[in-house]
Simulated assay, not measured.
Amino acid sequence: MTDPYVTGTADHTFMPPPRPSSARPRRWLLTVLAAATALTAVIAVAGHSSEPPDDRATAPVVIDGTEPVQLDGALVRTRCFSYRMPEGLALSGSSAGCATAVGVGEDDISEIQVRMQAGSGGDVDEVATEVRAALVEVGTFDVDTVRTGGRDAVRIRGVDGWGLRRTSYVVPLPEGVFSQDGVALDSIWLTSPVSPEFDAWVATVLDSLEVPGD
């Protein structure tokens, strides 16, 4: 079944947040989920982006969530972003649209998920502040901002419902550049298990991450 707010047909544990409320001018949304089937926490705190308007916002790229993801050698390409797949990993067959996964298997404990999501774009410090506030009652998470691959990102580190450590990143993008089914997609969500190998693989993905038009 295809979820209109998921940027592909992949059925992963880490899903993009629900649709923003039309009654508010903007939502910060972030989903923090456990590996496999457990913990789910949704952040929904209203806020306004302080980012200047983006020239590309006049004609957003409309994403087809069923469109195949391209693999050009080691380069994973979608209409929203591209990155270099770490050596030894494989692109998941469930990757589609702007939702991808690469790993040594096809489950949440053996792959890195990289996808677009709605509602966490704009100024990175503002996003981090809202994430910290929303996670207070969810559990113990370390939230900070980092500069990686020439981009600002919010990094979220914590332990999932199975007791496994995970690291996730929110990479805010300008508003109005990408949309799917009428919903603006304004950040890239990357999540991965924690280990020396996965940490190195995630660094490869983040360092090579490119967004069309940048």
Rank of each mutant, 00 (worst) to 15 (best):
F198K: 02
E51M: 13
S95G: 04
R115M: 15
I156F: 07
I63G: 04
A203L: 08
A74N: 14
Q117E: 15
A200K: 12
V154M: 03
S49Y: 00
A90S: 13
V143D: 03
A35Y: 03
R79I: 01
R19T: 13
G47I: 01
L206S: 06
T66F: 05
F141V: 07
V45M: 06
D144H: 13
G97S: 07
P20I: 07
A57W: 05
T191R: 11
A128L: 04
S120T: 05
L75W: 07
T31D: 11
R166A: 04
D72W: 02
C98A: 13
A133L: 12
A74V: 06
H48D: 09
V138F: 14
L135H: 07
L185M: 15
I63R: 07
A99Y: 10
V32T: 10
W189P: 00
S50V: 11
G158A: 10
P60D: 09
G88E: 08
L29E: 07
V131E: 01
D108N: 12
V76C: 08
R79A: 15
A118T: 15
P18A: 12
E106M: 08
L75Y: 00
E210C: 03
D3R: 05
T7E: 08
P60E: 08
T204M: 04
R165M: 10
A96D: 07
P196D: 15
T145M: 02
G139K: 10
S49T: 13
Y83Q: 03
D123R: 05
S50Y: 04
D72S: 14
R84L: 09
V143W: 05
Q180P: 00
V114T: 15
A46L: 00
T37A: 12
D199E: 15
R24K: 14
A41C: 15
D186H: 09
A23N: 10
P60A: 09
A96E: 02
F14V: 02
P25W: 10
W201P: 00
A128D: 02
G176K: 08
P196H: 09
A46E: 15
V104D: 07
E130W: 10
G150I: 08
E175P: 00
T66H: 12
S110F: 00
D181F: 12
R151D: 02
P25G: 12
S50W: 02
S208L: 05
R165H: 12
I112A: 04
F198E: 03
Q113F: 02
S22Y: 07
V127G: 03
R165T: 11
